[in-house]
Amino acid sequence: MIRIFALLIGLFFSGMLLLSFAIGAYTAATETVAETAEHKFHKHAKAVSFAHDGPFGKFDRAQLQRGLKVYKEVCAACHSLNQVAFRNFAEIGYNEDEVKAIAKGWPAETPSVDPETGEASSRPAIAADKIPSPFLNEVAARAANNNALPPDLSLMAKARHNGPAYIYSLLTGYQNQPAALLKKFPDSKTGEGLYYNPYFANLNIAMAPPLNDGQVTFDDGSPNSKAAMAKDVAAFLTWTAEPKMEQRKSAGWAALIFLLIFTGLAFMSYKAIWADKKH
């Protein structure tokens, strides 16, 4: 009885699937799927290497500090970094006083309440504060950016596939829309207030090209070409997304070495116990 039911149900499901397949195959054979510009012209992130890559990689502190400077002077005008607190900058090589100075001198202030009147107000940030957002809220952010919302950057390096390389590619990837694209997809012309960037998912990004050669000057005279700055800020955002990366890797090695020894011992134990048993 159970087998008869099973047979009927099996025939039904398999039959419907094969019918779906047949109709799908017929459709695929008779109709061509329209190609899209995104399909044809989207590019994967450029190959770029960082000091923190690989199982032994460590952050390059000087690069992170340069990246912070780029973020502060360029990105922070529109993008928040709301998971990061000023005190965290101690981890990229600043001492307590430097951290306080960075907090105090930050372009945006921390929202607070006027102690006299109770009205919304702001005060200079302290080390324990999270980095203040450039805009009070989403509405303000959209209003200032042509209705596009600049995303928070704290986790950007983990929120995109191959994040650090994606950030680098996006920042250095602005170009004119290729003639071949317009020829093939005349309707896909980059719209008003948008910029063509083949590394962006739908090719047209609302962010204007943010970096120009020499835009930020580094105290130590490090190169400040567009590519160098993009790489620095990509490294910095990798740190903001994964600040515990170095602890993670070193703990990982300790755990792996320990487990290799344990497993070796356990294997010998296992073999010794089974030595007189054929199995």
Binding site: A6, L7, I9, G10, L11, F13, S14, L17, L18, F21
Partner: peptide, 9 residues
């Protein structure tokens, strides 16, 4: 289709 056929048929 094979999955169902495998178990049920």
């Amino acid at each position: 289709a094979y999955y169902f056929a495998h178990f049920l048929i």
